[in-house]
Amino acid sequence: MSKHKKRTTKASTTGNIRIIAGSHRGRKLPVLMSDGLRPTTDRVKETVFNWLMPYIPAAHCLDCFAGSGSLGFEAQSRGAEHVTLIELDKLAAKQLSKNAELVKASNLKVENTSALTYLKQPSKKFDVVFIDPPFRKQLVEQTVALLNQGWLNEQALIYIEMESDASSGVINNLPENWQLVKEKVAGQVSYRLYQLFAE
C-alpha cells in the first residue's frame, strides 16, 4: 500500500470534538482524524476560554490552523460575531463546512488554504486569533510575523499553542508590542495568551 493510501485511510477515521459552553453547549461534532491533527483537549480549551470569556462576544475571530475546528466552533458557540477557519487539508476543510451547516453557523467561514498564504493577502482586522499549528514545523514565527502586518485590531488577543520542550517551545522574534497575559503548560503542550498594545 502506498504512503498516500495510508494517509487517506487514516484521514477517513472519524472522531469528535465537544463544544463546552454557549449556544451549542454539549454538542459533539464529527472530526476526520488525519495525520498531524491534534485537537486542543477539553481541559486546555476550558482554561483558554475562561481567559477569553470577556472578549469573545461580538469578536471577529481567526483560527489559523483550524484542524478539527475545536477552537473556532467554541468561539462561535460563545457569541463571536464572526469566525474564520483556515484549514489546508481538503477533507478536513470539507468536514468543517459540514459541521458549520450542522449547527447552522452562518457567521462561520471556512477557507481551504494555508495560513501563510491567507495572511499574505490584503488584510482585514481580527479581535481574537488562534495559532495552534502542527508541532515542529516552525510555523508559529512565520504566522506571527504575517499577523503583525495589519491583521490585528487594537488590543487584539492572540492565543498560541505549541510544544513545550525547551528547544522548540521558544517563540523567536516576537513583536515588541505583544504582551504576555497568561501562560500554562500541560504535559507536552505550552499555551499562551498575548495582547497587542500600541507601540
Rank of each mutant, 00 (worst) to 15 (best):
R78M: 11
E87Y: 08
S77Y: 08
D132I: 08
L29K: 08
G150Q: 04
D89G: 02
F130W: 02
R38Y: 03
F126H: 02
S68C: 06
L91A: 15
L71T: 11
Y194W: 13
P57T: 08
E81S: 15
L180A: 13
L32I: 01
L29N: 09
S2P: 01
K10T: 07
T84Q: 08
S2R: 02
G15E: 11
W51A: 11
T41Q: 12
L146Y: 04
L102H: 12
G69S: 06
G150K: 06
N172Q: 14
G15Q: 09
V129I: 15
L37R: 07
G67R: 03
D63L: 03
T47I: 15
G187M: 04
T41M: 13
V31A: 02
E46N: 09
S123Q: 09
A115K: 07
L116F: 04
H60I: 05
H24S: 14
E154I: 02
T41D: 12
L196M: 13
P57V: 07
I158H: 00
R25L: 02
Q142P: 09
E101M: 03
D35G: 13
S77Q: 01
I131F: 01
Q138H: 12
A66D: 01
D89H: 14
T41E: 11
Q149Y: 02
E46Q: 14
S77F: 07
N16A: 11
E87H: 05
P57S: 08
V189Y: 04
L102W: 00
I56C: 10
L157V: 01
G79A: 10
V103P: 00
A59I: 04
A105P: 00
Q155H: 01
E183L: 12
I56Y: 08
F135I: 04
G79T: 10
Q76L: 11
P175D: 05
I56M: 11
A75E: 06
K10P: 04
N172G: 14
I20D: 09
L196H: 07
N177F: 04
G67H: 03
A145G: 03
S12D: 13
N112K: 12
N173P: 07
I19A: 07
V140Q: 06
V144N: 05
F49E: 09
L29C: 10
A58P: 00
A11Q: 14
G26T: 04
R192F: 13
K182A: 07
E111S: 12
K120D: 15
D89Y: 06
G26Y: 07
Y194N: 10
K6A: 14
K90Y: 13
L108Q: 04
E74D: 05
V129G: 02
L180C: 14
T117S: 15
L174R: 06
A21V: 09
L108F: 05
E87P: 08
G69N: 01
F49Y: 13
E199H: 10
L157P: 00
G22R: 06
F197I: 12
T41N: 09
V44I: 15
